[in-house]
Computed example of a mutant assay.
Amino acid sequence: MRLPSTRRRAQRSRQRGLSLIELVMFIVVVGVALAAVLRVFAQATAASADPQLQRQALAIAESLLEEVQLMPFTFCDPDDANLASASSTAGCASLTEAIGREGSEGRFSTPQFDNVNDYHGYQMSGIVDISNTAVPGLSGYSAQVTVQAASLGSLGAASGEVLRITVQVTGPAGTSATLDGYRTRHAPNAAL
């Protein structure tokens, strides 16, 4: 039995597939969509290093802030004979502790920093660890420390019982991180 010619034509047209024009249009549409998706991926990849730079600057600032906060905070210089018994700067034999380094003290030199406030004004360009060894990959960063009297709760800045430590780190591509921390004097002459 033969099908009528219109039915045969309808069956053939259903079985034919895509025309050349339809195929070209499909390729163009997919190409444009793929280009847009690849552009988004390229921008995300190019900016992916930025958070790493910021995290590195923050890690440097945290490390340096912790180093400073762990130093003693005393009325007298740790080389003073009355260090352990002084309950104010008047109790020091001769070496009172003040904001800033005393003489030739340094982070790595002899004599070394021996009190929190010795770090005031400390700067480094290219990050080095506590043993003065350059940390690989951090030569593009710099850090600066500021230590100043501060108020905290019921303690006023004039009391001399609180120090505010600010660490500023700058790095590649304008990266920066600033952290503040406080160091308080506990008991009459704490943190020996």
Rank of each mutant, 00 (worst) to 15 (best):
R2E: 15
L3H: 08
L3T: 06
L3D: 09
T6G: 11
A10G: 04
L18A: 14
S19Q: 08
I21D: 01
I21K: 05
V24S: 14
F26G: 06
V28L: 14
G31H: 05
A33Y: 00
A35K: 03
V37Y: 03
Q43M: 14
T45E: 12
A46P: 04
A47M: 10
D50K: 05
D50E: 13
D50W: 03
Q56D: 15
L58S: 10
L58V: 09
I60Y: 08
E62F: 06
E66Y: 10
Q69V: 13
L70W: 02
F75L: 04
D79F: 02
D80V: 07
A81C: 01
A81Q: 10
N82W: 01
N82F: 03
L83G: 01
S85N: 08
A86S: 15
T89G: 01
A90N: 14
L95N: 09
L95Q: 09
L95M: 03
A98L: 09
I99G: 09
I99C: 03
G100Q: 08
G100S: 12
S104H: 01
T110P: 04
D114A: 13
N115M: 12
N117L: 09
Y119K: 10
G121K: 06
Q123H: 06
M124C: 08
S125G: 14
I127F: 11
D129S: 10
S131T: 15
A134T: 15
L138N: 06
V147M: 11
V147N: 12
V147Q: 03
A149L: 11
A149E: 11
S154Y: 06
S154E: 13
G156A: 15
T166A: 12
Q168A: 15
V169D: 11
T175G: 01
S176C: 02
A177C: 11
T178G: 07
G181E: 05
R183L: 09
T184G: 02
R185S: 05
A191S: 12
